[in-house]
């Protein structure tokens, strides 16, 4: 099958349409704007809704309405915009609305810069809004995965009636690579038992997140937790590179997993048995996979573009039997292969 050479951000939009996404509500922000721009170009051409909302706050609320109406719907933004969306994300999580969110992370805090970081890990994976909820979080590391994981996000969002997030960084969004497209998906899911179709059949339905009785709200929360437990059971995804005989396990996602792949090759050339585990799903996190190495390795080497956010999950997963060491950069600085390798050497060899 032939491929198209395309930016990750645009691959998101094509993947969304192929997945049957019926509406896009967004707001411009660098480095995610190509998503809104491509959506503006393509959505109306295939009879679907595109609207640039008045704010990130409104855009996520529009997806709340669209998802409630039974649509496959999405919004996309970058870190400061995602902070604004947290209100709507919490509501959608509670009302169990299948919404797809794409976050092309940039450097923070505050206005920060438009350069890449991975410092939204906590606000996405741990839930940046109020209340007891999780997002399904998928972390692509190529343009191909920007397409495929966006499509998967729609599938999982519908399967679990949950908010699914494609969490990428500015590099993955801006990078162009070959993408091979799957066939368009026919959305055949019957949502009439809960969605609002403005019909006699669905008139009885209620989309709601308020429960004033503690017992009722606790039960609702428990149902949500059961759902997240189910997701943890079924939806763990990861990728491994040269881990078979590894003495050190690298852990990285997004752009850092691409750099780490080259770092693994560099280490191997020098006779150091480094391997890489790349979490594709950040929630659910591949805890058991990471833990499975701990008897046979000398340590874990975590790299991320943040102050060390994913590393907390690695530490929770693997415990204290083996050292978990961290190499991070912040402020939009993307390190070279050599810098990361040096970081690895400092952590474990020298």
């Amino acid at each position: 099958m032939a491929k198209e050479f395309i930016k990750g951000n645009e691959a998101v939009v094509k993947g969304a349409i192929l997945a049957g996404c019926q509406s896009f509500y967004g707001y411009p922000i660098t480095p995610a704007s190509e998503i809104a721009e491509a959506a503006a170009k393509f959505f109306p051409s295939v009879g679907r809704v595109f609207l640039q909302a008045e704010s990130e706050i409104a855009a996520i609320q529009m997806t709340y309405g669209a998802a409630a109406a039974g649509e496959r719907t999405m919004t996309a933004s970058s870190s400061p915009g995602v902070s604004l969306k947290q209100e709507g994300i919490s509501y959608a999580a509670s009302s169990e609305l299948p919404v797809v969110l794409v976050d092309i992370m940039r450097a923070g805090p505050g206005l920060g810069s438009i350069a890449p970081e991975q410092s939204d890990y906590n606000q996405i994976v741990k839930g940046g809004g109020h209340g007891n909820y999780k997002l399904i979080v998928l972390a692509p590391n190529s343009a191909q995965e920007m397409c495929n994981l966006t499509m998967l996000a729609f599938e999982l969002a519908d399967k679990y009636r949950a908010v699914a997030c494609v969490l990428a960084d500015g590099y993955i969004g801006q990078m162009m690579e070959p993408v091979e497209y799957p066939e368009p998906v026919e959305m055949k899911i019957d949502k009439s038992s809960w969605a609002l179709h403005a019909t006699k059949e669905t008139r009885k339905n209620l989309i709601n997140s308020i429960y004033l009785e503690p017992a009722e709200l606790e039960a609702h929360n428990q149902n949500l937790q059961n759902k997240f437990a189910e997701i943890e059971k079924n939806e763990i995804r990861f990728d491994e590179y040269r881990t078979d005989d590894a003495e050190y396990i690298g852990v990285a996602y997004g752009i850092m997993s691409r750099i780490m792949r080259s770092v693994v090759d560099t280490a191997r050339e020098k006779g150091i048995k480094l391997g890489l585990v790349r979490p594709i799903s950040l929630f659910p996190f591949p805890k058991a996979k990471l833990r499975s190495y701990r008897e046979n390795i000398k340590g874990y080497f975590v790299t991320e573009l943040s102050n060390g956010q994913m590393v907390d999950d690695v530490r929770l997963a693997v415990g204290e039997l083996k050292p978990v060491r961290l190499y991070t950069r912040m402020g939009g600085y993307v390190p070279s292969i050599e810098e990361v390798f040096e970081g690895f050497e400092k952590a474990f060899i020298k």
Partner: peptide, 12 residues
């Protein structure tokens, strides 16, 4: 058909 929403966001 009923839907309850966040404070102020009903028009969106």
């Amino acid at each position: 058909g009923n839907i309850q929403v966040a404070h102020g966001r009903a028009p969106a």
